[in-house]
Design a protein around this nucleic acid. Sequence first.
DNA 1: ACGCCCTCCTGTTGGC
DNA 2: TGCCAACAGGAGGGCG
Length: 273
Amino acid sequence: MPELPEVETIKLGLAPHIIGQTIQSTLIRESRLRWPVDPELNLKIAGQKINSLKRRGKYLIADLQAGHLIIHLGMSGSLRIIMIALEQPRKHDHLDIRLDNGKIIRFHDPRRFGAILYTTEPIEKHPLLVRLGIEPFDQQFNDRTLYSITKNRKAPIKQILMNSQLIAGIGNIYANEALFQAGIHPGTIASNLNMIHCKKLVASIHDILLRAINLGGSTLRDFVSSEGKQGYFQQEHEVYDQLGKPCSRCKTPIVMKRQNGRSSFFCPKCQKN
DNA sequence: ACGCCCTCCTGTTGGC
DNA sequence: TGCCAACAGGAGGGCG
């Protein structure tokens, strides 16, 4: 579920509940995530105030007084705010962070590809973050920077978009959707894109991500009580998971193709190599 | 440096 | 209805 817009939505929903609060305690029910949760996590972060909440790529970063909590939701992770003693933990509720205001941040992740890490190193030097590529909403992300990323690469453009070490935050859904909107075939070799393609693609990426964030935002009011709601952007998918359905522009049935182990969906008529 | 493939894990779905 | 394989929104790590 969580690509850039979902993580941004979670950040916005979580922030008012947790910013300025002090962590009272941490409860680990299952430490076997992508990386083991530090058994001393509670010792290390209890008593620390949460100063701010940021996003980098698909990572959430809570800045504490003396360090940073790095949270990644993997493929199936979600976070909720719940009231103390109100809800029993469900299966796959792996970790609770109890705050002084009586609220609990509860981490849920059936596939356990997610991660919760604490570091006292400068956050930008953390090995998981240091190699991340440019943020799509960075001022520097424009037609020229995308062109410089693509001009010497032989991989298909879709894989370039999904490579978080080149561009951070775009996953399978938004790569598919942005390429459809830009009229570019997902299998196009990156180095074959010209500046015009790159300009269109940057505009599409911006537009798709912004629209998704805005729609995700409409579920914010449910954030406290609901289990990682899907958000409304899924109703806006033009190609992702739309195999066989008519293209919204030309009515040609949407096609699916495996690319590097992932499903690519596209309109064979509107999207050119 | 680059691109491809494998891996971690559980839950859901579709074909027979 | 049940069984089983395929697949799912990520991404680090290892290899050629």
